[in-house]
Design a protein around this nucleic acid. Structure first.
Lengths: 193, 193
DNA sequence: CTAATATGCAAGTATTCACTTGCAGCAAGG
DNA sequence: CCTTGCTGCAAGTGAATACTTGCATATTAG
């Protein structure tokens, strides 16, 4: 991947955030990447090709992989906070917009498997974490897949909603949201008596 | 709104689900609505106009309004189940796809206020419900806006994720998800000791 | 120095798309 | 019967877009 090609990919992904796939023209891309339009087609087979090669790059998936959740302390509250925070600081409103751009019906089929890696990383890591916590005797027996799904849905839902509606829908800040949600989950997971 | 115009709107919204805004051509719409293409422009100013008039109709917002959550029993578990179920049975994968179609940058600005009515209905109703439950002495004092946001995000997140990735991401069914999530929330909200 | 490679530039092609226009038929109401 | 309004039909318009081509120039590697 030479530097010119990378510049073309980066420009394309940036434009995707702003305008979506169909509204991003190769002329726009050329301008933003500071190359001639025909150079694009010397480096890539098609417009679709650029996007597919882009989403294959970890950097264009917000650098979210299982390893970013490795830093656990085996304290439920601290760790759930870390999970939510790690995700939310990477999947910003901009990234949500990008991921919507990548779902355009013309390219959707090729991009979905890569987009899916992001939730997968969160979910798999969290399920493993709960199992380990259970072995350590720190939490009870649950359906950890459902549990992880609830926590991830709540995390994802929040970024998506704030990316869509800004503060029009809710004035709850990200910081507050994490605190209150984690408190709810920790309390929900703990054993009463 | 005569019958022909309504048929054009319905066809447009259906196509939006399948292909998104830009990929839906006026030719497609004409075919699906069984009218001539020029009839579309006799009834509507522009393609954008059709979509905007469509999203203004309650039926194209899944018939979600605050009233659908009125059927409460003042039992926390039953009521949270009702909230999640009422939403999820209306906002199906098809509706999620439609709402993504409506977010195309060309029309986004006009559709967002209408799309937002759906989460608003859920959130406002749920906050009022929590306040009433508190007055009845059934739940403790919380930040109800955060709490409602967490529950709604978890509900919305789940439909969106299953609409996007089918059962590739998780095998958890909607039924299971509701049960397990509600159990978690109820336990989390309840007061210990 | 020479040959290969990368890129710019300018012009062009074929297609698609939103939207328009002029005319004709038809049904309903007065 | 006659007007009015709705719709179809056929043809067209102008703009935009993905992608191509031929040639000139600059940089780099051997």
């Amino acid at each position: 991947m030479d530097e010119t090609a990378q510049r073309i990919i980066d420009a394309t992904m940036e434009l995707l955030k702003e305008k979506g796939y169909v509204a991003t023209t190769t002329k726009d891309i050329a301008k933003k990447a500071h190359v001639n339009e025909c150079t694009i087609f010397r480096k890539f087979k098609s417009k679709k090709d650029i996007v597919v090669l882009g989403i294959e790059q970890n950097k264009w998936r917000g650098n979210v992989s299982s390893e970013i959740f490795n830093n656990v302390t085996w304290d439920l509250q601290a760790d759930l906070t870390m999970y939510m925070r790690s995700y939310l600081e990477r999947i910003t409103a901009d990234f949500v917009k990008l991921s919507i751009g990548l779902r355009a019906p013309q390219i959707n089929e090729y991009t979905i498997p890569y987009i899916m890696k992001i939730p997968e990383a969160f979910l798999k890591s969290l399920v493993r974490y709960f199992e380990a916590m259970h072995e350590k005797g720190k939490i009870g027996k649950f359906d950890y897949e459902s549990l992880a799904m609830t926590i991830f849905s709540a995390t994802f839902g929040f970024t998506f909603l704030t990316a869509s509606f800004g503060d029009q829908l809710t004035k709850v800040t990200q910081q507050e949201y994490i605190e209150k949600s984690v408190a709810l989950f920790v309390n929900g997971i703990s054993i009463k008596d």
